[in-house]
Nucleic acid binder design. Structure first.
Lengths: 192, 192, 192, 192
DNA sequence: TATGAATGAGCATTCATTCAT
DNA sequence: TATGAATGAATGCTCATTCAT
């Protein structure tokens, strides 16, 4: 994501923060301007509408989120450890992202094609990132060669998302034993 | 959920539909009244505010959703088949529930304690419903006796929720091979 | 004032009480109906609108007020004592009448000719009632024969009204030495 | 009373006029905005609510009223003439002030502490202003030295207020012989 | 470029009144 | 006659957006 200048970045960061706290409809342009330390009118020099600013801050947030994930995925760790780190990252990152994401998805009319594309693109990359881990797991000899890579990837994604949105209403600080989860997945739940 | 009379039910159904389509903030009381075939003022004879109507329609929707699940869970099926049916139900049910649910969760200020309780209560029951399936699976001899029941339950829930919220943006009509998923979970992904 | 039946009287009394407490615009027909122990619709069997009910309760209240005054004026007392009693009555009566009276007068559009006439008629009678006291005072030899009866009457009225409306904002329980007032009026404030 | 700028003054004057004509509840923000020649939203840039605008226009009106009185009180006149001028001013000023004042006092819930204080402060000053005239009257030798100054002050106030509020319903254009009133007060109504 | 004063469309809510029972 | 469920006109207020400076 490219910004014309520092001020544009400031605005997006401010907007992101405000949208995250308040959701789309309860966030006021005035509040965002104040947070960014500029005048209300100036917002419109950079973004033609609240909607556009929202979209931009969404993309910004997504990219930031996925960047963090990239870092995790680049850690020099074995399959189990990497998946566990990934779970942890998702849990922590998403704790903060919920309001804005949900605001985003519960207001479909706010999503332009551009943002939708960016999102899908990111999500899709994300899916393949996980699959890379899975493949590393196979190479590493931890994951069976004939395991369905798509399904394992999808399971890891699903479980990592269990702290998102609706699923996330429960106690956000409850401990989850990620180790046991990944071990159970590897071992299987069925009788031999 | 009890309704004073048929009209109250009409209102809640209308509200539910409108909220589902538009989310909380874009739903107009006038639209709901029109949908219910009554005057705007009448809404306020039954619900003291938009917020309250929203909450009620949320509870209504949750109960309806969970009722459907109950039916699935009471089917006379083996473990695999029941889980598959459950996945299918969730996928179809949730396709329609997303907007309102997300509207709900992205507007925390709209959630009264009463509704939160109802929701948690339902969610919690739901968790145990799945666990009952898992236990049936154990009795049936399909699930290993020493498998971690909580984790399997949680995996089933997570995967069933993959069509919810943020996860659900992708192509909603894409086919998912639920059979393969449950088999993979049983068999495990790890090398023996 | 004549009432069709006991119920009509109940309604007017209830209305009077509610208007007195809340003023016209903050009084609700529902509240009045409740107070009267009847259904909201029934009010409209007796009065064709809120305005009409208000007017009627105004007339009722005025008549009640002037009746009390009549009683005072019929007491078997000398001039000084009667004026003092009159001051006291006005002070106490008006303490409770303000809201409704002001509501009345600050909403000229609410006053029909009928009510205005009733009021003027009462006020006018009232003026002459005071003048009767003044004349008694003259006969009694307490008031000078050549005193301007109109002016004395008017002074007594003005002073008795000092606890009304705008004048009444001050401490309503403050003691006023009515004796001294009437004596001062008799004696005059000017140097001989 | 200080105004941020000319526009604020315009608004208050417009509001004052509209409230005076219609009273609080029948005055519409749109009407006031139109009168002031501005948009409805602009009112809310200057006053956060109808109530606040009402209060401000009350204070404005009171101050204007009392300013006029000050002028009268500063005239270089003897006791009798000054009291007569004061009576005249009150009669004319109050002819226009009634609706808004009464609207004010018949809606106690509209009165904030700030306004109440302003009012009492003004009223209290006003009382002492009259008393100053009385004292001048004593010095001048027109009022007896041992006259009760409080009572005379209070009488002058009461009589000057006879054109306020409830008292004022009668024919506003009727002539009142203020000279005769003050002379009667000086001379006294009692038999020597 | 940056600003914030001005704007008005838009909406939740109230409540007097009606009318079918 | 008595009722109260139903109604919808009416209005205060919000806030994204504009535009003169």
């Amino acid at each position: 994501m490219k910004f014309k200048n520092q001020r544009e970045l400031n605005i997006v960061e401010a907007a992101y923060e405000i949208f995250q706290i308040n959701g789309y409809h309860n966030a006021k342009m005035k509040t965002i301007a104040d947070k960014a330390g500029i005048g209300k009118g100036t917002l419109y020099e950079y973004f033609k509408s609240k909607k556009e600013l929202f979209e931009t801050s969404m993309i910004f947030s997504m990219e930031k989120g996925f960047e963090g994930i990239k870092e995790v995925l680049n850690l020099d760790l074995g399959f189990r450890e990497k998946v566990i780190e990934y779970f942890k990252y998702k849990k922590n990152y998403m704790k903060n992202q919920n309001t804005i994401f949900e605001s985003f998805f519960s207001n479909r009319e706010l999503i332009s094609d551009k943002v939708r594309d960016t999102f899908f693109c990111s999500m899709s990359n994300h899916y393949y990132d996980i699959m890379v881990i899975v493949e590393e797991g196979i190479k590493e000899g931890v994951v069976r060669e004939d395991a369905d890579k798509d399904i394992l990837t999808s399971c890891i994604l699903s479980i990592s998302n269990q702290h998102l949105g609706i699923n996330s209403l429960g106690d956000k600080n409850s401990e989850v034993d990620f180790e046991k989860i990944i071990d159970s997945l590897l071992e299987g739940f069925g009788r031999r």
